[in-house]
C-alpha cells in the first residue's frame, strides 16, 4: 500500500512566518475541554480537571483554558493556534496520564502534525549558495574545444585487464620465478 492510496494531506515542512527568529512565542492560544459529568468515558478528564488543570493554567499564562461540560457526549480536546489552525482530539476513556501528555503535545505544536504527511524534513528558501551542480561543473574547460568524434575520449572504459594482458603477466611471472630458481641452486641440493 502506497501513500498515493491514502486520502491524506501532504506537503512540505512549513512554519508560521517568523517563528523562532526572535523570541519564541507559544503558538497555542486557546484550549477547550469538553466533557460529561456523568459518563465513564470522561472519568480520566474529570480527574485531570480535579488535579492538574490549575497547574496547567498557571504554568501557561499565555493559553486560555475553557472547560465546557455537556451531557452524555464524548470528551474532547480542541486547541486553537495563533495562525488560525485548530487541532481536535477525542479523549474518550483516556487515563489521566494520557491526557496530561496530550495536553502537553497540543501546547508544543503549532498545527495538527499528524494531519500532514511531510515530503521532506527540511525547508529552505535558499536551496543553493555556490550554484547548483551541472554536468559541466569541475570539468576541464578544454573540453569545449574538442571536436567529436574524438578517439581518446570515445575510448571504452577498461576496468579489468584483458585476457592477453593477463597472459603476458603470467608469462613474466614465470620467467621471474625461473630466474629466481637459477639464483639459488643450493636449494635443490638441500631438498
Amino acid at each position: 500500500m502506497s501513500n498515493k492510496h491514502l486520502f491524506q494531506k501532504f506537503g512540505f515542512l512549513r512554519a508560521p512566518f517568523g517563528i523562532g527568529v526572535g523570541r519564541y512565542v507559544c503558538q497555542l492560544q486557546r484550549i477547550t475541554i469538553k466533557f460529561c459529568k456523568n459518563h465513564g468515558d470522561s472519568f480520566g478528564i474529570r480527574s485531570f480537571l480535579e488535579h492538574d488543570l490549575i497547574d496547567y493554567a498557571k504554568q501557561n499564562p499565555g493559553v486560555v483554558v475553557y472547560v465546557k461540560p455537556r451531557r452524555h457526549r464524548n470528551p474532547v480536546l480542541k486547541a486553537e493556534y495563533l495562525n488560525g489552525e485548530t487541532s481536535w482530539i477525542c479523549i474518550g476513556n483516556f487515563s489521566r496520564q494520557d491526557i496530561i501528555q496530550w495536553m502537553e503535545l497540543l501546547k508544543t505544536q503549532y498545527h495538527d502534525g499528524p494531519a500532514l504527511r511531510l515530503f521532506k524534513l527540511w525547508h529552505t528558501d535558499f536551496p543553493s549558495i555556490q550554484g547548483p551542480w551541472t554536468p559541466f561543473t569541475f570539468k576541464n574547460p578544454s573540453l569545449n574545444q574538442i571536436k567529436f568524434p574524438d578517439k581518446k575520449i570515445g575510448e571504452a572504459l577498461k576496468f579489468k585487464p584483458t585476457a592477453t594482458e593477463e597472459l603476458i603477466r603470467l608469462f613474466e611471472e614465470q620467467q621471474e620465478a625461473k630466474k629466481f630458481d637459477q639464483e639459488i641452486p643450493v636449494q635443490k641440493g638441500v631438498s
Binding site: 512554519a15 519564541y24 502534525g113 499528524p114 504527511r117
Partner: peptide, 15 residues
C-alpha cells in the same frame, strides 16, 4: 538554532 515545535508525524502503516 531555536526549537519551534514538537509534534508527531502522520500515521505510518506497517503492514
Amino acid at each position: 538554532a531555536t526549537i519551534i515545535q514538537k509534534t508527531l508525524s502522520h500515521t505510518i502503516t506497517r503492514f
